[in-house]
Computed example of a mutant assay.
Amino acid sequence: MAYQTFQQEYLQTPAITRAYCTSCVLTTLAVQLDIITPFQLYFNPDLIFNHYQVWRLVTNFLFFGPIGFNFLFNMIFTYRYCRMLEEGSFRGRTADFFFMFFLGGLIMTIISFFVNLVFLGQAFTIMLVYVWSRRNPYVRMNFLGLMNFQAPHLPWVLLGFSLLLGNSIIVDFIGIAVGHVYFFLEDVFPQQQGGFKILRTPGILKMIFDSNPEDPNYNPLPEEERPGGFDWGGEGARPEDAPGDRPQDGQGDNQNQNQ
Results as ranks from 00 to 15, higher is better:
143 F>S: 09
153 H>W: 13
186 E>C: 11
116 N>G: 07
181 V>N: 05
128 L>I: 13
113 F>H: 13
114 F>M: 03
105 G>R: 11
130 Y>A: 08
134 R>D: 04
180 H>D: 14
161 F>H: 14
107 I>L: 07
150 Q>R: 13
133 S>N: 07
138 Y>G: 02
145 G>D: 08
170 I>M: 12
112 S>Q: 03
106 L>H: 12
117 L>D: 02
133 S>K: 00
134 R>S: 03
129 V>N: 03
139 V>Q: 03
114 F>W: 10
161 F>W: 10
149 F>I: 10
161 F>V: 11
149 F>N: 05
179 G>I: 12
150 Q>V: 15
110 I>Y: 11
106 L>V: 12
169 I>Q: 07
114 F>L: 04
156 W>D: 09
175 G>T: 10
120 L>R: 08
128 L>M: 14
147 M>I: 15
170 I>D: 13
181 V>I: 15
100 M>N: 07
178 V>L: 08
187 D>F: 02
186 E>F: 02
184 F>Q: 03
165 L>E: 12
125 T>R: 01
126 I>E: 03
158 L>A: 04
119 F>W: 02
159 L>R: 09
100 M>H: 14
146 L>K: 10
185 L>Q: 05
144 L>W: 11
160 G>C: 12
137 P>Y: 04
128 L>G: 02
106 L>P: 06
124 F>E: 01
167 N>C: 00
184 F>T: 08
137 P>M: 03
131 V>C: 00
130 Y>G: 03
110 I>L: 13
163 L>I: 00
100 M>F: 13
165 L>Y: 05
183 F>R: 03
183 F>I: 08
158 L>K: 03
180 H>C: 09
143 F>K: 00
186 E>H: 00
127 M>E: 06
100 M>S: 06
100 M>T: 09
173 F>I: 15
123 A>I: 05
109 T>I: 08
106 L>S: 15
150 Q>E: 15
